[in-house]
Structure formats: structure tokens, C-alpha cells
């Protein structure tokens, strides 16, 4: 019996060492740099892209949108709804911390609250409006599984949406594969899965994402990037809420 126990402990230690032993290079500085790279890959510079966003909820028809997006830097993007037909012409503008919705037959853009869900998805407006993580989170690498490393982001202050984000990152491609968002209590609230990494604009970016709402069973939103091209410039008026009707 004692032998068996000892054997188990040894095996566990061995397995643990193999799985979780961190390479020496994964220090604090590396982690911070990696986070900045991830930020760059998720929030490209000047781009035009199109994507579909489909939300699934138990007992409901899937809610599918197709957007055409112009973005500049991490904190500015304009999303135009291409389909469904009933919402065609609607635009959503992300400008720093602010989110605006424009509708063709409403005289002025409407400012949306950060707490609201984004267009019926499992993303909150806040999830979209946050302009990269490096500003608000300290990064630390705590685990390594082959080429995957676990980047743990902890909030620098208590005024951000999530207290902690655990992000699995492919160290070779420098793209995330999964991110789990935690509340202050340490309980997971949402989980994002990244897939289909492609090289666009010199960086490998995950083109598909799936955001799972852990509070509501069966609720998740799938984002699929259809096209993505780097632009030389985007006119500034695009990101001005007073010009959204143009």
C-alpha cells in the first residue's frame, strides 16, 4: 500500500514537472512582451475586415450578423451591418471607451452603455471597447504545455471588467488559443476560444472566436473572420460619431 502511494506521488511529480516546468526565458519581461504582441494580433492597426457573428442560446433561433469593419489602432473601429436585411445600414462605432449605434432612420447616433450585451451576443460592449490588455493588466506566465503557455493577466486596478484573465497562448505563433475571464471572486464568467490562425499583415491572427457565457447554459457567440486586409489609411471621419450618417 505504502509502495503504491509512493509510486503515485513520484509519477505525479514527474508528470507535473514535465507538464508545468517553465522554461527560464518565461520571465516577467517575456510575459509583458507577449501580452503586447497578443494585443497587436487581436487589435490590428489599420484594417478593413468582414466577419459573421452568430449567437446561440437555448430555446432561441441563432442570431446571425454579418459586419463590415474598418479599424484603426486598438481603440477605433466602425462596424457596418451587412446582413440581416432588417438591420442593414446600422453602424456601430467604437471610439476609445465609447460605443455608439447609428441607425438610418434615427436622427442621431445613440451612445450604448458599457454593461449591455453587444447586439444580443455574449460579448458585452465592454469586451469590445477595451482597447488591449497591456494597459490594464499585469502579465505572468505560470504554466507551459508543450508550445502552449499560460499567460495569467491580473488587473492593475479594480476598475476594469475582469479581475483576472487566463490566456493560453501558442508561443510559436504568438496567438492565443483560449482565454478565460474571471470575476473578483475568482470564478470564471466567460470563456473565449480562438482558432483558425492566419497570417495577415505580417502577424498571425486567430480569425475565428467563440465566446461562451458561463452563467447561461448553452449561450455562446461565434465570430468568423471572412476577409481581412490591411489598408494604408482610413478617413478620420469614419470614427467620428457625428459623421456616422455619411
Amino acid at each position: 500500500m505504502k509502495k503504491l502511494l509512493l509510486f503515485t506521488v513520484v509519477m505525479l511529480l514527474a508528470a507535473g514537472a514535465g507538464l508545468f516546468a517553465l522554461d527560464a526565458k518565461f520571465d516577467k519581461a517575456y510575459a509583458e512582451k507577449l501580452l503586447k504582441t497578443v494585443d497587436k494580433s487581436l487589435y490590428p492597426q489599420i484594417f478593413k475586415s468582414s466577419l459573421t457573428m452568430t449567437t446561440f442560446r437555448n430555446g432561441r433561433e441563432p442570431l446571425a450578423y454579418k459586419y463590415e469593419i474598418y479599424s484603426k489602432g486598438a481603440d477605433k473601429s466602425l462596424m457596418k451591418i451587412v446582413s440581416p436585411a432588417r438591420d442593414k445600414g446600422k453602424k456601430i462605432l467604437l471610439n476609445g471607451d465609447n460605443l455608439w449605434m447609428y441607425m438610418p432612420d434615427v436622427s442621431r447616433p445613440i451612445r450604448l452603455s458599457r454593461k449591455q450585451a453587444f447586439m444580443g451576443s455574449t460579448f458585452s460592449n465592454e469586451d469590445l471597447a477595451s482597447s488591449g490588455w497591456a494597459d490594464n493588466y499585469n502579465a505572468e506566465i505560470t504554466q507551459q504545455k508543450g508550445t502552449l503557455i499560460l499567460l495569467v493577466l491580473s488587473a492593475k486596478n479594480r476598475e476594469v471588467a475582469y479581475a483576472k484573465i487566463e490566456m493560453w497562448i501558442d508561443d510559436n505563433a504568438k496567438v492565443p488559443t483560449e482565454a478565460v475571464y474571471f470575476g473578483l471572486s475568482g470564478k470564471a464568467i466567460k470563456k473565449m476560444e480562438f482558432s483558425n490562425p492566419q497570417t495577415i499583415g505580417g502577424l498571425v491572427r486567430p480569425l475565428d472566436m467563440k465566446m461562451v457565457d458561463l452563467i447561461e447554459e448553452g449561450a455562446y457567440t461565434e465570430v468568423k473572420m471572412l476577409t481581412m486586409e490591411e489598408l494604408q489609411s482610413v478617413p478620420e471621419y469614419m470614427f467620428d460619431q457625428s459623421q456616422m450618417g455619411r
Binding site: T55, R57, R60, E61, L63, Y65, D87, M101, M103, D105, V106, S107, R108, I110, L112, Q116, A117, F118, M119, G120
Partner: peptide
């Protein structure tokens, strides 16, 4: 005056009407 009403439509998405 004009007034905008913001709500969640029957498909679950955010919508507004004036």
C-alpha cells in the same frame, strides 16, 4: 420633440426607433 427608444428586439439584438 423627438425621442429615441432603445430595446432588445424579438431576435435578441439591440435596436432603436425614433
Amino acid at each position: 420633440d423627438k425621442l429615441i427608444i432603445l430595446s432588445v428586439d424579438q431576435f435578441g439584438s439591440v435596436n432603436a426607433a425614433e
